[in-house]
Design a protein around this nucleic acid. Structure first.
Lengths: 170, 170
DNA sequence: CCGCTACTGTGCAGATCGATCAGTTGTGAC
DNA sequence: GTCACAACTGATCGATCTGCACAGTAGCGG
């Protein structure tokens, strides 16, 4: 297996962390916070975006606060060769937050959100009516134990030390 | 059920959409894009953050690009009353991206990521070793059918028309 | 030893930010 | 009908940040 992932060194990780904690901070503030030059922050950030590690900075919407307090995880068993059709169907349904093809005989796991249990059932029924779906099982999310996060994983390995420090001040 | 969610009108939705498509845009550029005054954008954005609808602007990290190309969904059946302990354990494991308590007799659904199948198995084994876990089932994600998104859901209802337009220029 | 790359610190012109003000308009209360 | 209120507009101000360029320093490999 080739290492397709761009290796993130300590500075990259620190940059991501700082950016997570202060999302609206500009390059100058980040550079101050990290103790490096502004140009370095800009270059690193540019590289992270170029390599596809950082795909965006979209606003994180709290669906509960927005009025969509009901979420569910649905496992779909789909008909042979219907993956393409189903993908299009899922993408067209606003209530479907995300969907993944998984191991198992044609299984798809998707996450669904709705404003109420009634609305959720509507979406679930619509899913079940699909010609591509053979069987479906759903569980309702009751509480969020661990909110979505990626930094702990990235940090866990303690990346390689930063590059040549170069001109060390003075 | 009370409508705890802050109602988002057309302008709020347009703002979120513009912000999603141009995440690094400042208030001025957003105002130009939406055709409203800069102060309005700032006020709306402030309100969205105050009401908790927008919780942050953290950088979206593509785990595959970062070298963590293996993801799995794990269903844990847990022992009675062990939810608290398990939550702490899950939070302490970097490989656990998120976790939700779900319907079913003490079930928890969590998403796990790893650098390779071997690493994934390590995490899975660690989960199984937990005293709080009675049984565990895991499916590996093969491909992402629908990437995570929230805007379609928010937009689907076509929020109420914007507020009093006020001074209409001229 | 030399070339390459990465980082540092600085400077400048232009753009943006945050705060504030008066003016206009729709809404709901009285 | 009239009034106060809330929301949006358009504008200004100083302070700050951005994008870009430059020369200098330090580690790495040939």
């Amino acid at each position: 297996m080739s290492t397709d992932g761009a290796r993130l060194d300590t500075l990259d990780l620190a940059l991501l962390r700082a950016l997570t904690e202060h999302p609206r901070a500009g390059a100058l503030e980040l550079s101050r916070r990290l103790g490096v030059a502004r140009g370095t922050v800009q270059a690193r950030l540019q590289r992270l975006e170029d390599t596809g590690v950082v795909t965006g900075y979209g606003p994180d919407v709290d669906l509960t606060a927005a009025g969509f307090g009901v979420q569910a995880f649905v496992t779909l068993e789909i008909a042979q060769g219907a993956l393409g059709d189903l993908t299009a169907e899922l993408a067209a349904m606003p209530g479907v937050l995300e969907a993944h093809a998984t191991t198992g005989s044609g299984d798809v796991l998707c996450r669904v959100a709705a404003r109420s249990h009634g609305d959720l059932q509507q979406t679930l029924l619509q899913l079940g009516r699909s010609a591509s779906v053979v069987r479906s099982t759903s569980v309702v999310a009751l509480s969020e134990l661990v909110p979505l996060r990626t930094l702990p994983l990235l940090t866990s390995e303690g990346g390689p030390p930063a590059r040549a420090p170069g001109h060390r001040g003075g």
